[in-house]
């Protein structure tokens, strides 16, 4: 099972205790308590404005909590995959140069990271010329090339098509297996991250509910927040994952894609 890979006794990479952020007299989030341990994938979900990004920014030390605490393991090395890049066309930047933005890497390290995310072919391209999906792969490759202890991804699937989304989550799972890093993921919906996540926190200004993807999906709070039909759509996934993990191995992508394509409702109905 996925959860076995997380070492429950290991020192948390990052832990938030009753953390909250206030802005202009309003609480953006409050009472946030959770930890990410090595090898664990934790997903934050919630509607727009529910405080997902604020919570991530506390983890990244961009915002300091106004209440509560954020504790980091000493010398914690974070790899961050932002939602998008405010890259102005006025800056010439190749993928190869961008890979070295915050770390010195050898050419071999750069190309192996890009290959891992399937972006090796754009090594010499300009960052401005990439499609949404290619840019996401490059952003992920850059973050994992740092060999982070904690990988943080803020809605990594924006601008990526449905098949690309599934592929990206599979990739994140693989990276976790190889590096043994903790992963904190922000997602706008639960159904796609089901396969790749150990624990889900459902946010709406505070933590509504948390637990395994299955338990969150059946939680009354979650259903209230996201609507019954979303929860129903999840049933398909549960079936697949029960099936896929009987032998404890990752499903080969091509197979799982083919398998899913008939059962999965169209993305429009899921995303509302």
């Amino acid at each position: 099972m996925l959860t076995d890979r997380a070492d429950k006794n290991a020192e948390p990479l990052i832990s938030l205790e009753g953390a909250g952020v206030q802005h202009n007299g309003h609480w953006l989030v409050r009472d946030i308590t959770f930890a990410v341990r090595p090898g664990e994938i934790v997903t934050l979900i919630g509607p727009n404005g529910s405080g997902k990004t604020t919570t991530v920014k506390m983890v990244l030390s961009v915002w300091l909590p106004d209440t509560g605490q954020v504790r980091k393991k000493e010398n914690l090395r974070i790899g961050y995959v932002p939602q998008r890049l405010a890259l102005s066309a006025s800056m010439p930047m190749t993928v190869a140069r961008f890979m070295q933005l915050t770390a010195r890497l050898s050419a071999a390290e750069i190309s192996s990271s890009l290959s891992e995310t399937g972006a090796a072919n754009v090594l010499r391209s300009s960052l401005n010329a990439l499609s949404g999906g290619e840019l996401q792969r490059v952003l992920l490759a850059r973050a994992i090339a740092r060999k982070p202890d904690l990988l943080v991804l803020d809605e990594p699937v924006q601008g990526v098509d449905f098949a690309g989304e599934i592929e990206l989550y599979r990739l994140i799972g693989e990276v976790r297996d190889r590096l043994g890093c903790g992963v904190l993921l922000v997602s706008h919906d639960l159904h796609l991250v089901m396969a790749a996540t150990d624990r889900v926190l459902c946010l709406n200004g505070h933590i509504c509910c948390q637990g395994t993807p299955t338990s969150v999906a059946s939680d009354a709070q979650y259903r209230k927040l996201f609507g019954e039909h979303t929860a129903a759509a999840l049933a398909f996934y549960e079936h697949h994952h029960d099936h896929a993990h009987h032998n404890g191995e990752t499903i080969p992508l091509a197979e799982s894609d083919a398998e899913r394509s008939d059962a999965v409702p169209s993305p429009e109905t899921i995303n509302r």
Binding site: K57, L60, S61, V62, R77, I78, G79, Y80, P82, L85, A86, L87, M91, L101, T102, A103, R146, V152
Partner: peptide
């Protein structure tokens, strides 16, 4: 240079990755 360049591209990323 690295500080300036990373801050220009994405201040949050710079903060997250120890700059």
């Amino acid at each position: 240079w690295r500080q300036f360049l990373t801050e220009t591209l994405d201040p949050d990323l710079a903060e997250a990755e120890g700059l």
